[in-house]
Amino acid sequence: MVIAYVMVKAATGEVDRLKSEMSEIDGGIESVSVVAGDVDYIVKVKVGGPSDVKSIATSIHELRGIEDTQTYIAME
């Protein structure tokens, strides 16, 4: 099992819509949290392997209104 965190930067005014769209992505998203700071969301992903992390991160990055993503795989 692989746990990863996707940091997501969204366009201004898109935060509420994008939270629900990211939550609906199939395949292992455990939570979508709106946060204050350099990014707008932290998305927790729990999947079978690194290729699944890539698939979800790509799906998030391709949503209309997403400006940038950074993905971190937990090492524990």
Score class of each variant (00 low, 15 high):
47 V>W: 03
34 V>N: 00
59 S>P: 05
73 I>A: 11
70 Q>C: 02
47 V>G: 06
32 V>N: 06
72 Y>V: 07
74 A>V: 14
41 Y>E: 01
17 R>V: 15
66 I>D: 02
38 D>Q: 13
56 I>P: 07
57 A>V: 13
52 D>R: 10
50 P>G: 06
59 S>N: 15
44 K>S: 11
74 A>Q: 09
43 V>P: 08
13 G>A: 08
20 S>D: 12
24 E>V: 08
8 V>K: 02
48 G>E: 15
65 G>Q: 05
70 Q>D: 00
50 P>I: 14
24 E>D: 14
9 K>E: 09
20 S>A: 05
3 I>E: 09
43 V>T: 04
71 T>F: 00
24 E>T: 08
73 I>Y: 03
35 V>C: 11
21 E>L: 14
28 G>P: 08
51 S>E: 09
38 D>W: 03
47 V>D: 03
17 R>W: 06
59 S>M: 11
14 E>F: 14
53 V>W: 00
49 G>S: 15
16 D>T: 14
31 S>D: 13
22 M>Q: 02
62 E>L: 11
13 G>R: 04
39 V>D: 07
44 K>P: 01
21 E>A: 12
11 A>F: 02
37 G>N: 09
59 S>F: 04
39 V>W: 09
8 V>M: 03
16 D>F: 12
48 G>M: 11
33 S>E: 12
76 E>M: 10
5 Y>R: 09
15 V>Y: 04
19 K>H: 08
49 G>W: 02
36 A>I: 13
56 I>N: 05
60 I>P: 09
36 A>V: 13
16 D>R: 13
31 S>P: 04
25 I>L: 12
29 I>H: 02
62 E>Y: 02
39 V>C: 08
28 G>Q: 07
32 V>D: 04
16 D>E: 15
4 A>F: 08
19 K>I: 14
20 S>E: 12
8 V>A: 03
72 Y>T: 05
2 V>W: 05
11 A>Y: 02
60 I>D: 05
48 G>A: 15
68 D>T: 01
6 V>E: 10
52 D>G: 02
37 G>Y: 04
50 P>T: 10
4 A>L: 12
63 L>K: 07
75 M>N: 01
69 T>K: 01
66 I>L: 03
50 P>M: 12
64 R>E: 10
72 Y>M: 06
65 G>V: 07
33 S>R: 10
40 D>N: 05
70 Q>L: 12
17 R>H: 13
35 V>T: 14
7 M>K: 02
75 M>A: 04
46 K>M: 04
1 M>T: 11
35 V>G: 09
2 V>F: 10
64 R>Q: 09
21 E>Q: 14
63 L>E: 00
71 T>R: 03
24 E>W: 05
23 S>Y: 00
61 H>N: 12
55 S>M: 10
38 D>P: 07
64 R>Y: 02
8 V>Y: 00
58 T>Y: 03
11 A>K: 15
36 A>F: 14
43 V>A: 06
40 D>K: 01
49 G>F: 02
35 V>E: 10
18 L>Q: 13
3 I>R: 11
9 K>T: 13
32 V>P: 07
14 E>R: 15
19 K>P: 03
7 M>R: 01
1 M>P: 13
22 M>Y: 01
20 S>Y: 06
